[in-house]
């Protein structure tokens, strides 16, 4: 199970990095989103990999850690705000430059 989780996280992270490095701005934002999901999974793994029972459960057994889950909730909310902001700025850029190719968006380079 641990190995499966680790492989999943690394696969998601790798896909995210691949998309992040694309020239297309929209793809790179999608890559950012995928990476942040990989990080959320990583934080989850930080909490659950020893516990077998949910943190609030009154059952016998090793309880999983609730703190990383709280961290993930916070991170999800912040990331959502971040993507709203990135996408809104991307919209302005794509209207102004009529392209989503990052090489064409170069108003500031001389």
């Amino acid at each position: 199970m641990d190995v499966l989780l680790a492989l999943t996280i690394s696969a998601v992270f790798a896909i995210g990095v691949f998309q992040l490095l694309r020239r297309n701005l929209i793809r790179s934002v999608i890559g950012l989103s995928i990476i942040s999901n990989a990080i959320n999974l990583f934080l989850l793994a930080a909490g659950v990999y020893r516990g077998e029972v949910a943190a609030y459960a009154n059952a016998v057994g090793q309880r999983s850690d609730a703190l990383p889950q709280a961290l993930i909730l916070t991170a999800i909310v912040i990331n959502m705000g971040g993507f709203a902001m990135v996408l809104s700025m991307l919209y302005v850029l794509s209207v102004r430059y009529k392209t989503s190719d990052s090489d064409e968006v170069k108003g500031l380079t001389h």
Partner: peptide, 22 residues
């Protein structure tokens, strides 16, 4: 355009911080 660059790079940096805290 400037804000996009700033935000994008800082966002990646924040991901690094999350990974570090994890």
């Amino acid at each position: 355009e400037a804000a996009y660059k700033y935000f994008y790079i800082s966002f990646v940096a924040s991901i690094a911080l999350l990974l570090a805290s994890g």
